[in-house]
Lab assay of single mutants.
Amino acid sequence: MSIQHFRVALIPFFAAFCLPVFAHPETLVKVKDAEDQLGARVGYIELDLNSGKILESFRPEERFPMMSTFKVLLCGAVLSRVDAGQEQLGRRIHYSQNDLVEYSPVTEKHLTDGMTVRELCSAAITMSDNTAANLLLTTIGGPKELTAFLHNMGDHVTRLDRWEPELNEAIPNDERDTTMPAAMATTLRKLLTGELLTLASRQQLIDWMEADKVAGPLLRSALPAGWFIADKSGAGERGSRGIIAALGPDGKPSRIVVIYTTGSQATMDERNRQIAEIGASLIKHW
């Protein structure tokens, strides 16, 4: 067993022997301040990774656009098919120029040779490549099948209805392509620590998230040296922004954090800054 596999296998073990965790309302004060600064709703939840206990939450059962955070769930569904012998990570998928959609920095470079399922998941999570996500959605049967996968996990809230990039439209009061912070946090925890996926697939999923290259201005910008984070960000229309993450000190994750916002007129930089400040408060009061 590799060191990384050992780390993920012992996530519940280490967490069980940690000192009790206590909620700190100071972080919620910052979440509410972010709402004021952005002029928009902000949803927040913080779960203990081992027990699933909610440590703090704000608007945990209000719907927010998922945006690209759905790509972690998508690759979880792909990995479940791999575990069941219905898919192979090494299978190569070929596609054409007509398949390319807006923001496809990886797939646009491989029109000639195609990409493997493993490479597509890596591109979808680490670079948020939209064509990679659409190609992977095709392998599982489309958005409705991802929703069905989530329902089978016990998540009857999260739903995907459309493809990239239309799913980022974020129309107010439109339930399409949305989740709730509580539902997303619980589902992410199941994917990373539950028995739904094999140990190898859980490790692969967290490795992809740990290698995320496009979430630097968010929670990662607030992390002290030595902290662990595996995350996936999302951005959408109407001032929408979000991030889902597993993080913790001492090089291992111990909490799940989900943050979503929508309806702001603020710039992307300002949305990023507010999420980073929430992260800084979380870490300060850990």
Rank of each mutant, 00 (worst) to 15 (best):
T179C: 05
S221E: 10
E145M: 12
G76R: 00
L167C: 12
W227F: 08
S264P: 03
T178N: 03
L205V: 06
T107D: 01
G76F: 05
E102Q: 15
H24E: 12
V42E: 00
N130R: 00
T126M: 09
F14H: 04
I125N: 03
I278T: 03
S240C: 08
V21G: 08
L55P: 02
M127V: 13
I278E: 00
W286V: 02
T126G: 11
M127W: 13
A266T: 13
R202P: 01
K53R: 14
L89Y: 07
R91P: 01
G263A: 08
V29Y: 04
V31A: 08
R91S: 07
W227E: 00
T131A: 11
A245R: 00
A215P: 05
K252Y: 12
A245H: 00
S240I: 01
M184P: 00
S2N: 14
A84G: 13
I275C: 05
K32G: 09
P65E: 02
S104D: 02
I140L: 10
A230G: 12
L10N: 06
P253G: 08
H285S: 10
A9S: 15
P143Y: 03
D83M: 03
L47K: 04
L219G: 03
H156C: 14
I140M: 07
V42Y: 06
D177E: 01
K109L: 14
G242L: 00
T107Y: 01
T262N: 10
W286Q: 03
L79S: 03
A148F: 12
A16E: 05
L135E: 06
A183P: 07
R41M: 11
T261Y: 06
L219T: 03
L167P: 04
L89P: 07
L191Y: 07
G216L: 08
V31I: 15
T267P: 14
R159N: 07
L73G: 06
P143D: 03
I259H: 00
L188A: 08
L282C: 11
R189S: 13
T187V: 08
A215L: 02
A16L: 14
L49V: 13
R41D: 07
M1G: 00
V29M: 11
W227T: 02
F22D: 07
T261K: 03
I229C: 10
R59C: 04
I45C: 14
L55A: 06
M153W: 15
R92L: 12
I206V: 13
E56R: 09
I54D: 06
T198K: 13
G236V: 02
T27Y: 02
S122C: 08
P65F: 03
L219S: 03
H94N: 13
A211F: 09
K53G: 11
R273D: 10
N50L: 12
L28R: 08
L136I: 09
R255H: 05
A124I: 05
A9R: 08
P60Y: 08
V21F: 05
G263E: 06
E270S: 11
P253N: 09
I125P: 00
A40I: 05
I278Y: 01
I171P: 07
G279I: 04
T27H: 06
I45S: 06
P224Q: 06
S128R: 00
T179E: 00
T262E: 09
K144H: 10
G39E: 15
G234K: 00
F149C: 06
L28C: 07
D48S: 08
P25I: 09
M180R: 12
T147Q: 09
P25M: 10
D99E: 14
F149P: 01
T131S: 12
L192H: 04
T267E: 11
K213H: 12
P20E: 12
G194N: 10
M153T: 11
D83L: 02
T126P: 02
H110E: 07
E62K: 06
A16Q: 12
F58W: 14
D83S: 06
A34K: 04
E108P: 07
H94E: 11
A77T: 08
L199F: 11
I11H: 05
R176M: 10
G141I: 05
M66W: 01
V29G: 15
L160W: 02
D36G: 15
V78R: 00
F64S: 01
N98K: 14
T179I: 01
G263I: 04
E195K: 10
A182I: 15
L136K: 00
T267Q: 13
F13K: 04
L196S: 15
K252S: 13
L28N: 07
I3M: 08
E195H: 14
L205W: 03
Q37L: 13
K284N: 11
E166V: 12
T186D: 14
I283N: 03
K252F: 10
D177R: 01
A200I: 10
T107C: 09
F13D: 01
R7M: 05
K190P: 03
L10D: 03
A77M: 11
A225R: 13
L74D: 00
L55W: 07
V31S: 03
K213Y: 09
R241G: 05
F6D: 05
E145V: 12
T179A: 03
L191T: 06
N98P: 09
T116C: 07
A124Q: 02
N272A: 05
G251V: 07
T193V: 15
S281A: 15
L196P: 13
S68V: 00
N168R: 03
G226E: 10
T27P: 06
E56C: 08
S221A: 13
I45Y: 10
P105W: 04
T262Y: 15
K144T: 14
G142K: 04
P65N: 04
T69M: 03
D33N: 15
D250R: 14
L28M: 12
M67Y: 02
S264Q: 06
R220N: 03
G279A: 10
Y260W: 02
H24K: 15
I171Q: 15
V29E: 14
A280W: 11
D177W: 01
F64T: 01
Q86C: 11
R63Q: 08
L111R: 08
L223P: 02
S233Y: 01
K53M: 13
K71I: 00
L197D: 03
T158K: 00
L223N: 03
Q274S: 10
L205Q: 02
I140S: 05
E102P: 14
M153Q: 09
A183V: 13
P249Q: 09
G226T: 12
N130W: 00
L160G: 04
R220K: 06
F64E: 00
G251P: 08
A148M: 15
D129V: 00
F64R: 01
L120H: 03
D212L: 02
N50T: 14
R162A: 06
K109R: 14
I278M: 09
I171F: 13
S221R: 12
G234E: 01
F70E: 02
L160N: 07
P181T: 05
R159A: 06
K30G: 05
D269N: 12
K53Y: 13
W227H: 02
V117R: 01
D48I: 04
L199C: 15
S233G: 09
G142F: 01
E61P: 01
S264L: 04
E102K: 08
G142S: 06
F22I: 07
H285N: 14
M209W: 03
R91Q: 07
R271E: 05
L89T: 06
G226M: 07
L197A: 04
A222I: 14
I275T: 03
L49E: 04
W163F: 14
G154K: 07
R118G: 15
P105Q: 06
A40L: 05
T27N: 05
N173F: 13
D83I: 03
R273E: 14
L55Y: 11
L79V: 06
E87P: 02
L167M: 12
T69H: 07
I275K: 00
P172N: 09
R41C: 07
G234A: 10
L73T: 08
S264N: 07
V157L: 10
F17W: 10
R273G: 12
L196K: 15
G142R: 03
T126A: 10
I3K: 14
I3W: 07
E166S: 13
A246R: 02
S264I: 04
P20F: 03
L188V: 12
I256H: 00
I259P: 00
G141Q: 07
L191M: 14
S2Y: 12
S80Y: 14
A9D: 05
A280G: 12
C75I: 07
P20K: 14
N50C: 08
N134T: 04
V42L: 13
I140K: 03
G236Y: 01
H94W: 13
R59Q: 06
